[in-house]
Design a binder for these strands. Structure first.
Lengths: 175, 175
DNA sequence: CATGAAACGAACAGATG
DNA sequence: CATCTGTTCGTTTCATG
């Protein structure tokens, strides 16, 4: 029960999907893609922006030619899972540029990291000099990705009728 | 020993880093950020583009208000790891929009997936209707992310002097 | 929401130092 | 590479139907 559970129609969702795949599309192109004229399309984009739906517009680089194609998943256990230890770990991990993703996992109360590395030497140094030196880290297990089969950033949106989750309560509805 | 092991200087790397964080930066702003005038900056961006370093310009959406904040990691084992079975699995998995990432892992010759879901019901349906129905899938183990501590798309580039890896051979050097 | 007009800024190309 | 010129094009706002 929130004040304004904003709903997105199929045009809004079309706009989001276009932008998810091309952040540099011009307003004119975007308008054509969703069957609007430029003015209302422009207004909708601004409205979606004001709703805070856009996190960032980013350029994805190809890791291959840059020599950063090694993906390693690292599972990290902490000695004691008190709130304070978790916070310090998360802080420390967020300062490492090689850490692309970090999740607090259920079950073992572990962390799961995805890191990118140029070679094995760098991985070794990262683990020894940057991970094990974080206070509270007790166990580390790493597994290598032989191949990145899929990597995408576009969220799977429904085709129409999406009710936004209000910041406090959580009413989501798919139609 | 390839024909043209192109090297990027610190300005090129500065451009890449700017674009990694803001795909919509104007050429004028970009030029100022890397201490160039607009013309050579523009030419460098074009050159980097022609080298194939840009994969995509994308808009990252906030999963929270869209009701897609549940991240689940799923480990999948296949019955037999013959090339043909792998290929069919990868094909099938790439058609599922909820699968954000998929890696072929070393060791157990498993796959590791990250999928996003609106709720548990959807996860259950995904696993039962979409995963176990892929021929050759033998074992599935899923673990939930309680919290996304970090998620970024920007690759960690060296501060200067990066030799690109040529498509065939692989000579990478960091200075 | 569509249309059309108008002002502003940016992209892009070319020439010079 | 910097600076300058100029054209083209897209953005953004506004007034009208």
């Amino acid at each position: 029960m929130s004040a304004n559970p904003k709903r997105l129609d199929r045009i809004d969702i079309g706009i989001l999907n276009q932008l998810q795949h091309n952040a540099r599309i011009t307003n004119a192109e975007l308008a054509r893609a969703v069957n609007l004229s430029t003015t209302p399309c422009f207004n909708r984009v601004r409205a979606l922006e004001k709703l805070g739906l856009f996190k960032q517009h980013v350029t994805l680089l190809d890791p291959e030619p840059l020599g950063l194609s090694i993906n390693v998943f690292i599972q990290v256990s902490l000695e004691k899972q008190v709130e304070d230890a978790l916070q310090r770990f998360e802080q420390a991990i967020s300062e490492q540029p090689e850490v692309m993703e970090c999740y607090l996992m259920s079950g073992d109360a572990d962390y799961l990291l995805r890191v990118v590395m140029p070679d094995m030497r760098a991985l070794e140094r990262f683990i020894i000099e940057r991970l094990t030196t974080i206070p509270g880290v007790s166990n580390i297990r790493s597994s290598f990705a032989l191949k990145q089969v899929r990597y995408k950033t576009a969220l799977p949106l429904p085709s129409a009728g999406l009710t936004l989750v209000d910041p406090n309560g959580n009413r989501t509805e798919w139609e």
